[in-house]
Write a protein that binds this DNA or RNA. Structure first.
Lengths: 178, 178
DNA sequence: GCGAAGCATGCAAAAAATTGCAGCAGCTTC
DNA sequence: GAAGCTGCTGCAATTTTTTGCATGCTTCGC
């Protein structure tokens, strides 16, 4: 969809390599954008060819060399322009909710298990986000402009997580009576 | 991902045609599963070949004929088994949050506009869901088992929507100071 | 009765994403 | 020093999704 812009956005603050980007996507942007490393490497090549990124190889001790990518001026310009274009959303696809449509006496117990497990996963991610908020965004109003945006995205993730936990509790309560 | 199961799940209550399925997806399942009509028609063909669906043509007055699909016994069995398999989630991809990462003094006004617009859209969907809840799920504890699951999925959509509205307000407040 | 609009179905090409694998470097273990 | 593990990069095939039509049939407006 807009993988190119997701990558370029990640490179706003620092130059990163493909594998660093892949890890970043899982962490900070993970809740509203995810991409596999194959996707990222392919896109990096395309963006370099377009002249939006430049690359330089970096020797590392103890690890194989990595290739750092950074935004070019043209890249920064393209990204800034993109903000004014159309905005697409690709809603979640969640097999768990689909499974709930198939709830029965027989599978209720299994689904309770799945919800419990998911609750756990979400709680962990939520914990991570709240740590980040406490550490970097204690005083949102005082942040530099761009970081206010980043903060709001983080807030969105936290809201989402909290909402999901509340829903899990409601679901588990109702399912207990099945 | 699990388009096949999404379609079969829609056919649990009633036999539907391709276009009816496409409309259904937009409405009831829309917030956690979306599919275009091309995807649906293709998948319907595959599922028929597998023997999980049967089809019959229905003459309509005032409209072109449609082809109704219904679950076969094998289809019902496959769907029931699928519930015990692995559950995949494909998180949202939202360009709006990505754009927020690129917030600047210059584009703040534009992004405020986008958030306002999105808030409106979500509010309308939320209104629809709440209407459905009031009409069909006034007393959740009294529902037949399977409908409890459907109710919970609906609740998830409502939670999500409410959460999003709250986030929008928070975002607009913070952005007002930029 | 003619053109426009809408519904239902579908094909085909292109783009995007996933899956599975592989090479290579250095480090660790035995 | 051979075998195995990990980190980084990448290719290739397949599957999934999107995009852009095409067809036929019916009503509706004029």
């Amino acid at each position: 969809m807009a993988l190119a812009q997701a990558i370029m956005t990640s490179l706003l603050d620092a130059d990163l390599s493909g594998s660093e980007l892949a890890r970043d996507f899982e962490k900070s942007m993970g809740f509203f954008w995810q991409a596999s490393h194959q996707q990222i490497y392919q896109e990096l090549r395309k963006l370099s060819q377009k002249g939006w990124l430049n690359k330089r190889e970096v020797n590392q001790t103890g690890k194989p060399n990595k290739i750092l990518y950074g935004l070019t001026l043209a890249g920064r310009k393209a990204l800034a322009d993109w903000v004014y274009g159309p905005t697409r959303v690709q809603p979640t696809k969640d097999e768990l909710l689909l499974k709930l449509y198939n709830l029965s006496e027989e599978n209720a117990e299994h689904l309770i298990g799945e919800i419990t497990q998911r609750r756990e996963e979400v709680m962990q991610r939520l914990y991570l986000y709240e740590t980040i908020r406490r550490r970097h965004y204690a005083d949102p109003a005082a942040l530099p402009v761009r970081h206010k945006g980043v903060y709001l995205a983080l807030e969105s993730g936290i809201h989402q997580g909290e909402q999901f936990l509340a829903w899990c509790d409601q679901a588990l309560e109702l399912l207990a009576t099945v």
